[in-house]
Design a protein around this nucleic acid. Structure first.
Lengths: 260, 260
DNA sequence: ACAAAAGTGTTCTTGATACACCCATGG
DNA sequence: CCATGGGTGTATCAAGAACACTTTTGT
């Protein structure tokens, strides 16, 4: 049997069998002031009232899961057409008891947003722009630090851990890190992305050489420079390149004692 | 909003909205006689009558997608509790028009099965064991070479390409290759896995050193040996180790001109 | 002058590559 | 004794790690 034929309903009576709800859940990350932040919403109703949860919602009858993910992201964050938005399917969660109310199969997506990392720690001007909707759910959409989150609603803890792990792994062998950066960024900011997601410290000279030696990772913007910390030499600016993968990869340090 | 609350049906009337069918599709690979093979079934009905398709079926109301995948694999292949079976979620396909009959969201899985590679090319004794069910769908389940497949039903071409790409990539940085091997295997057989999936030739001495230098990849079976090609020195036998990842990775050769 | 951050150079070590070569078995 | 496949040794080269050092800015 294949996609839809076979084992179960043969006549395709659309209401003859127990329906599944199909939803999307979004693990939205950004880096602000060298801290990994996650976009969460506070639930207003049972189950899990007052707990934090991932943004998300139903897949509508005529849209794909990815379309639904983009729509929900725009609706709940007010961010539509964010330049440099990275959206990628994570995996699907389908345990029968993951939502106590009914059978819900959820396709999880990971999204990465740029937000000038550790530059001028501005007074949450962006955060405000995330809450333009006075609407029911989006009203409490908020960035929270990834570390030290209390237990989330449903199985969202696990989704978030899976998403974080995937992002960390993809930094090793793809050019994904630029998705956290604004259109113009310094190599120090790019390094900050790696250090924040991995929770490690990298050697600046070696990081620099590695990035510049990978064709298509970043492109220099001739003449441009910017001060990053108030003091120090102004850093050269770069744009994201066209390459998608890193060869050879940029491996996390000290994987020796790492559990496999 | 979260998994199930919010945007759409608030009262949770299970039949109030357009239902989705949720299915699993299986990309089942094995290596036989140094050829990458895929398990396919021939469709008996429209749409796509007589075309080859991936095995799969409906997720039942009280099982997870992974449970459904294991059940379908057992039902359609007669293979239940295969030792060393590797089953892993690939991704979810949810384009609204992917099945012309109704809305079907399919969670695709990749499965890898051992089958003594290129050893004694026995007379398809295994193949026969895949068709014990005279039942409707499983009747035509069959191994076919991955290369040179005609167009498959639905979007199964794409699923299969995605699965192959994922397997190839995971060989680089995980110990996945042993999933293609029987419980006891030689290093030559393990190398055959890499060469078959990647479509490249590897240097035997270097491959050997690399594998043995990775702790937990394989474990030697003291004293055991086996002839592989009728001639030549008997090869030492190994078991799969406990490690899951490869550090450093075993990269595909000649990635220079590779599109990124 | 000093601190802070960017950027360059150099050494050391590791791992990958490309071979040449030896060993054991069947025909 | 030769073909075939397993296994070892070795020289060469590229990449990563560690760290000293220079440059440019603000205070």
């Amino acid at each position: 049997m294949t996609s839809a034929a076979g084992t179960a309903p043969e006549g395709y009576d659309k209401h003859a069998f127990e329906p599944f709800a199909v939803t999307v859940d979004l693990a939205v990350f950004t880096i602000r002031a060298a801290v990994l932040q996650v976009l969460l919403i506070q639930r207003g109703q049972e189950p899990y009232a007052d707990r934090w949860a991932l943004p998300g919602g139903f897949v509508l009858p005529d849209e794909s899961a990815e379309t639904a993910a983009r729509r929900e992201l725009a609706e709940e964050t007010g961010l539509s057409d964010v330049p440099g938005l990275h959206l990628e399917q994570l995996r699907t969660y389908s345990e029968p008891d993951r939502d106590p109310r009914m059978r819900v199969v959820s396709v999880a997506y990971t999204a990465l947003l740029p937000d000038a990392p550790s530059d001028s720690v501005r007074g949450d001007s962006h955060l405000a722009s995330l809450e333009p909707h006075g609407g029911s759910d989006a009203a409490h959409a908020q960035w929270l630090p990834y570390d030290g989150l209390g237990p989330l609603a449903f199985d969202h803890d696990r989704i978030l851990v899976d998403a974080h792990e995937r992002v960390g792994a993809k930094l090793e062998y793809t050019c994904l890190a630029t998705a956290f950066c604004p259109p113009e960024f310094t190599l120090g900011e790019l390094q900050q992305v790696y250090e924040t997601v991995w929770g490690t410290v990298l050697d600046r000279p070696n990081f620099r050489r590695k990035v510049l030696a990978t064709p298509g990772f970043v492109e220099p913007i001739p003449g441009a420079a910017r001060l990053t910390g108030g003091r120090g030499k102004p850093a050269a600016l770069y744009r994201a390149g066209t390459a998608a993968t890193l060869h050879p990869p940029l491996l996390r340090p000290s994987r020796e004692g790492r559990p496999v």
